[in-house]
């Protein structure tokens, strides 16, 4: 399948190359440029390097002059022997939304129009987990509110992800470490994945994303928080730019009650493994067989 795609691209490339002969752009160069290449996952290391360099220059310009030399654009692969997992203690979350905004800052989400990868749902203790009556727009001076509990939802990084299956162009896929990523340069904006995702975890850039230049995070990953164009879908990547360098995701570090736990599912000594082995864990909408890598638990 990918073979065919490559061949068709090569053909297009020849056509484009001929058409653009006057511009003196050689065809072999074109195969490496952003517009005439394969999906990120199919690129050779050499091609990746050239594309990352090209994109880095492009992205630098979005930062204020004094920050431009801090910009890094990584394409780092999954670490060997790692499968990421997440655990969130619903008995502790107080619904303060610190995680929502830490995520926005870390991952360069559009401020207006507003995109939030994490949505904190307020639920009635009496009803238990009930999405039909959940409220993400609770407006109050103080949390937690009496008789309510809070359930933050972001991408569940499913092992059997409906979004990946629904994408008609293969612009979204599972990485070796379990992170479901989107190639923003390959996404055609059809939003099939948004319809397929049972967790509302995917978000569409209906307009040009808008992040003040001085607020942009310069630590970028191609498959993560690099500035997105209008017309593509985005979602939580477990902070790929941090976690592939050994760091905790931003939401884990900000949570004032320590409700968020993250680590390697393949490491028997990791915090997530401890949670799974000792606590009562729960996955959202288990009946859909999406098999999330995101677990909710009762820590008390």
């Amino acid at each position: 399948m990918s073979q065919t795609a490559t061949t068709r691209r090569d053909f297009l490339c020849v056509v484009a190359g001929c058409a653009a002969a006057a511009t003196a752009a050689g065809c072999s160069d074109l195969t490496h440029t952003r517009w005439f290449r394969s999906r990120f996952i199919e690129l050779s290391p050499d091609q990746k390097e050239r594309i990352l360099a090209e994109l880095l220059e492009e992205n630098r310009k979005k930062f204020p002059p004094d920050k431009q030399d801090q910009v890094v654009l990584s394409g780092k692969d999954a670490l060997p022997g790692v499968e990421f997992g997440y655990a969130l203690d619903i008995s502790r979350c107080v619904g303060c939304r610190r995680c929502v905004y830490a995520c926005v800052d870390e991952n360069n989400q559009s401020r207006d129009p507003q995109i939030h990868w994490i949505r904190v749902l307020e639920m009635d203790k009496e009803r238990g987990i009930d999405f039909a009556h959940a409220n993400p727009y609770y407006d109050t001076d103080q949390v937690p509110r009496e008789d309510h509990f809070y359930l933050p939802v972001a991408c569940q990084q499913c092992r059997n992800a409906p979004c990946v299956k629904s994408c008609p162009v293969g612009a979204t896929w599972h990485e070796e470490d379990g992170i479901v990523v989107v190639d923003y340069d390959w996404c055609i904006g059809c939003r099939c994945c948004m319809a397929a995702c049972p967790y509302g975890a995917r978000h569409f850039n209906w307009a040009e994303p808008n992040v003040p230049a001085e607020d942009l995070n310069p630590n970028l990953h191609y498959l993560g928080n690099r500035p997105r164009p209008k017309g593509v879908v985005e979602k939580c990547t477990f902070c790929i730019q941090r976690t592939r360098n050994g760091r905790y995701p931003a939401c884990v570090e900000i949570c004032p009650v320590g409700a968020r736990k993250f680590g390697n599912l393949l490491d028997p000594n990791s915090e997530v493994r401890y949670v799974i082995e000792h606590k009562r864990v729960y996955v959202l909408k288990a009946e859909l067989n999406t098999r999330p890598r995101f677990y909710y638990f009762y820590g008390v």
Binding site: L79, Y248, V252, E253, C255, G258, K261, E271, Y274, V275
Partner: peptide, 20 residues
């Protein structure tokens, strides 16, 4: 017990290295 396992309370730094 949970705190020693890193599960009660907040930890920051590196998920893959207790030293950090």
């Amino acid at each position: 017990r949970d705190w020693k396992a890193g599960v009660h309370g907040r930890r920051t730094g590196h998920w893959d290295d207790p030293e950090q």
